[in-house]
Simulated scan of single mutants.
Amino acid sequence: MGDLGRALPLYQRTLEDRERVQGTDHPDTLTSRNNLAYAYLTAGELSRALPLFECTLEDRERVQGIDHPDTLASRDNLAGAYETVGDLGRALPLYQRTLEDRERVLGTDHPDTLASRNNLAYTYLTAGDLSRALPLFECTLEDRERVLGTDHPDTLTSRNNLGGAYRRAGDLSRALPLYERTLEDRERVLGTDHPDTLASRNNLAHAYLTAGDLSRALPLFERALEDCERVLRPGHPMTAGVRASLKHARST
């Protein structure tokens, strides 16, 4: 719900209580440490999130083993935290190792393996390495459609991400249909007010703007802003981003 003011104290207390009652090395305690780190990351408190992710990975490797699914999840989470702070030099090797390990331990079709493939592709895209990002996005979408189904939220995320990669590559003829389909599917599957649906509406508006189609872009930006202001918490980053995009589109 985005109510971090209530979530953080609960995560903090749960971690303290689990450390006291179950011990610092209990798997549930390690899960609490991971959850608190993720909440700090969501709140933008990176100076608190990163050390927690790092120590949780170290502890899980020691207590549960390097191949345990929870350890692989911690490695993936730490990579995501490094990516958030812009440290791609640390994020990429962790994502690459996690994908290799998940393929070996969980199998190539496991949902966590597919998530790792998507995360690695997204990091390549962030690094500007389209030659690696695009094939990974394409195969991840194909695999998720086959394994999870065309309407699964993760499949819709892959479709959205592939559209973004094509847009970044300047291939609007491929990007626009993917964005249009993703918005339609998310409205149908997740509902018109789901945050992912709002993101799709904003992404499609951006693609129309890039294509020079202001007659389609402006109404989408306006609706996306109205919906974000109504649905999301005050000061949400997505709302600020949509507002800036609408302002830019109106000045174009």
Rank of each mutant, 00 (worst) to 15 (best):
L99A: 14
R13P: 05
T98E: 10
V21D: 11
T150Q: 07
A199T: 15
L214G: 07
G170I: 01
S74A: 15
L141T: 08
D70H: 13
P135W: 14
T197Q: 07
E138L: 08
V85C: 03
Y38H: 12
G23Y: 08
T113N: 07
D28S: 10
K247P: 01
F221N: 10
E100F: 09
H194P: 00
Y166P: 05
E222R: 14
A249P: 05
D87L: 11
T197E: 03
Y95M: 09
T140K: 13
L136R: 09
G44I: 04
S74D: 11
R230H: 02
D112Q: 06
T239M: 11
T155W: 03
T252R: 15
Y95N: 12
G149Q: 14
D143M: 06
R188C: 00
Q12M: 10
K247C: 12
G44L: 03
D129S: 14
F137L: 14
F221C: 06
E58D: 09
L232D: 03
P237D: 12
A115R: 11
R230K: 00
R230Y: 01
E54K: 15
Y11P: 04
L130F: 07
C55A: 07
H68A: 10
L125M: 15
R117F: 09
R102H: 10
L57H: 02
R159G: 02
R146V: 03
L209D: 15
D109K: 08
H236S: 13
Y82C: 04
R216G: 04
S74Y: 13
E142G: 08
S158V: 01
D151V: 08
R233A: 15
L50H: 09
L232R: 08
P9F: 06
E58F: 08
Y166K: 08
A217T: 09
S116Q: 08
R159V: 00
E83T: 11
G164R: 08
T197Y: 01
N118T: 14
A121I: 12
P93G: 07
R60A: 00
Q12L: 09
E229W: 05
D28E: 07
D112R: 11
D154G: 00
G23H: 05
D112V: 06
P135A: 13
L120V: 05
E83F: 09
G86R: 10
L4S: 05
